[in-house]
């Protein structure tokens, strides 16, 4: 284990909305350069875990470390600047800004606009064709491309993806995850929450299952996959 010092680590993290606690001690670690899929039923606390990572929800107990650095309580914009690129659930874009303006916003994380735009359009030529279009008027798949482009072009240490597939056709979801796999191959660590478990297990190095505000199992995708059908659809098969 020693050679795999985790890049990102959560230890005993608790979080609450108002007085209702939803995370009851989450332990999770993401080794550098790996893809970790976080699975589990609705309401297990997956999105909240990601929000804690993005600084949007404070952790009431526990510690969060990024590359050995303690990052509890750091504001979202500072986390973004030290290398956590989070694409939130829904669409991680500004609908009333143009494609180009969306990419310009990404420059706050530290990479200059010209570089971001160049990288994004190279990776997603379709975005280049629509640079002047309002992001909210693009198709769902294109919006997710834009969100991903923002995350990728800013040289993040960790890419955090929440339900990339929401409302998208299977073909587009596959395309997006192929891309995630390519990015991971370049050494970026990825933490991904996804309802289409089989799809994401195809690209993940590790999988963790959450239930009841805790991580209940961690393992290789092959170990986890067998349990999926019964977990999601009941014990018929």
């Amino acid at each position: 284990m020693a050679e795999h010092t985790p890049l990102l680590e959560l230890r005993g993290v608790h979080a609450s909305y108002g007085r209702i606690e939803v995370l009851h001690g989450v332990d999770l670690s993401l080794p550098a350069g790996k893809v970790l899929a976080l699975l589990g039923p609705n309401g297990a606390g997956k999105s909240t875990t990601l929000k804690v990572l993005g600084g949007l929800v404070p952790a009431t107990h526990g510690c969060i470390h990024l590359a050995g650095r303690h990052i509890n309580g750091t504001e979202p914009h500072k986390l973004a600047r030290i290398g956590i690129a989070m694409i939130p659930e829904g669409r991680g874009i500004f609908p009333r800004l143009t494609v180009q303006e969306n990419l310009r916003m990404a420059s706050y994380a530290g990479v200059d606009t010209a570089t971001i735009v160049e990288r994004a359009f190279e990776q997603f030529p379709r975005l280049g064709e629509r640079r002047g279009q309002l992001a909210g008027t693009m198709s769902g798949g294109e919006q997710q491309m834009l969100a991903l482009a923002r995350g990728l072009a800013t040289d993040p240490e960790v890419l955090v993806l929440d339900e990339l597939s929401m409302g998208l056709a299977p073909l587009i979801v596959s395309e997006l995850y192929e891309l995630v796999a390519r990015v991971a191959a370049t050494g970026v660590s990825v933490l991904v929450v996804e309802q289409f478990a089989r799809t994401v297990l195809g690209v993940a190095d590790l999988a963790a299952i959450m239930a009841g505000g805790r991580v209940t199992a961690v393992g290789k995708p092959s170990e986890i996959e067998a349990e999926l059908t019964s977990a999601y659809l009941g014990a018929a098969t």
């Binding site: 299977p170 596959s174 089989r198 659809l233």
Partner: peptide
């Protein structure tokens, strides 16, 4: 139905 819920395996490419 399983595919709709879990996604397709070949999706990962």
């Amino acid at each position: 139905v399983q595919e709709a819920y879990l996604g397709t395996i070949e999706g990962g490419g």
